[in-house]
Design a protein around this nucleic acid. Structure first.
Length: 175
DNA sequence: GCCAACGTTGGC
DNA sequence: GCCAACGTTGGC
């Protein structure tokens, strides 16, 4: 049997232009005191590396992120916690080098450069909302459209959480 | 593998 | 500043 049909199929599947785009959505938390959406807007290329994540669950979510995935930018530990805008993944997970630097606040001696424990992604600014979609407002829908949202789960502390397309679309309509 | 102690997160 | 909730650490 000639392998041509198989080869053709493979070409289709691996060609990014022909592949079915599977978009995923996320929510990234940041304390605006240390890094806000305005800081992201003001970066030279409006992009930054999302470093310093030191939680295994959050790390695992980051490793699932694909280029083009969209992220809500959430401000936490501030007077008005909530979603303030959108960023886009522009580089998929790669080793977080801040873990190797003893001078860095997020230094982790247990992360070996030959077997990195921590990863980061790069994100780029997409838009800032005209208003903050505050946590109390999101909670209004905790029994409805946002009933399964990870952010709203009791005691949730994850800094990187998945968002479903339904949740994404719903929240975008609130703004 | 259990679990107490401790550190961190994050809303209020 | 308080405190609930959770993750991590380390002794046993």
């Amino acid at each position: 049997m000639f392998p041509f049909p198989v080869c053709t199929l493979k070409c289709v599947v691996t060609n990014p232009a022909l592949a079915i785009k599977e978009m995923n959505y996320w929510l990234l938390k940041s304390e605006p005191n240390s890094y806000s959406i305005d800081d992201l807007m003001q970066e030279p290329k409006k992009r930054t590396s999302w470093d310093g994540v030191r939680n295994y669950q959050a790390r695992n979510f980051m490793r699932e992120m694909k280029n083009g995935d969209l992220c809500f930018f959430y401000h936490s530990s501030c007077p008005k916690p909530g979603i303030v805008g959108i960023a886009k993944v522009v580089r998929q997970a790669y080793p977080d080098h801040t873990a190797f630097d003893p001078e860095d606040h997020h230094y982790d001696p247990k992360s070996d450069p030959d077997d990195p424990r921590w990863f980061m992604v790069d994100v780029r600014f997409v838009r800032k909302f005209a208003r903050i979609i505050g946590l109390p407002e999101l909670r209004e829908y905790a029994d409805g459209a946002l009933s399964d949202m990870v952010l709203l789960r009791r005691g949730n502390r994850l800094s990187v959480t998945p968002v479903t397309k339904k949740q994404w679309d719903f929240i975008n309509k609130l703004k």
